[in-house]
């Protein structure tokens, strides 16, 4: 093990990890919004759009992110739609993550019993108010475990971004192995970098899960994190 080599190359990894975090943050935020939007459409049963959302969810859940990225990055430019690597990564993450988030919200929305909605309506709340003040808060709190699992899943998925020429952790590692043949050092730093990225989030999410269980209303034990 070459400690000097490791020390020298830490900045490379920090930079790469920074890139991963930045893209993951933007991508997950977009995915969250896409998911919320899709689940709202399904919840409100908007005609036509509902079918499209269903199709999108099936398509995105049953294809790998890497293939989606290849299509975005190498395929679409041929018909004049050009994205930069970063845009591709963010769009890909939002496309892939959106459906997972939508499913998370759906399971949350389904867990809110119909009585809650009826009670809200009978208290004179409008449909919108019921959704905003009664259904959504409960739905979101029950879907937190699934939501956290999705965030971790999506951050792990960012590891394929090197395929669209983004200088992420995998890219740096492969570079160092290729240039200096320092396989051990590069791989160790890679593992440690991902641990440092994901372990805090994993721990944080289990804390969060325990916290929001108190926010549950009535029988929340029926919801199982998948």
């Amino acid at each position: 093990m070459d400690i000097h080599f490791i020390k020298e190359n830490i900045p490379l990894y920090v930079e790469a990890a920074g890139l991963t975090v930045r893209i993951a943050l933007i991508g997950i935020l977009c995915a969250f919004l896409v998911g919320l939007f899709c689940s709202m459409i399904r919840y409100l049963k908007v005609p036509i759009l509902k079918g499209m959302v269903q199709g999108y969810i099936e398509l995105s859940r049953n294809t790998p992110l890497l293939i989606q990225l290849y299509f975005l990055y190498f395929g679409l430019p041929k018909i004049g739609i050009l994205f930069s690597s970063e845009q591709c990564a963010i769009i890909g993450l939002a496309f892939q993550g959106g459906s997972y988030m939508a499913e998370a919200f759906r399971s949350g929305l389904e867990s809110v019993s119909k009585v809650q909605k009826d009670t809200g309506l009978s208290l004179g709340m409008t449909e919108k108010q019921v959704l905003q003040y009664v259904v959504l808060p409960q739905a979101i709190s029950t879907s937190v475990p699934v939501f956290c699992a999705n965030v971790i899943f999506l951050i792990k998925e960012t590891s394929v971004f090197s395929a669209v020429a983004l200088a992420d952790l995998m890219f740096v590692t492969k570079d160092l192995i290729g240039i200096y043949y320092k396989t051990d050092e590069a791989l160790w730093m890679l593992v440690i970098a991902y641990l440092l990225l994901l372990l805090p989030i994993s721990i944080l999410s289990s804390v969060l899960e325990r916290k929001v269980r108190y926010a549950g209303f009535g029988n929340t034990s029926t919801v199982s994190g998948k």
Binding site: M170, I177, T183, L187, V191
Partner: peptide, 17 residues
Amino acid sequence: IMPQLVLLFLVYFGAAK
């Protein structure tokens, strides 16, 4: 916690060495 790609790298490059 490890992305599958990292595991693939570990085995593919690590084992060879």
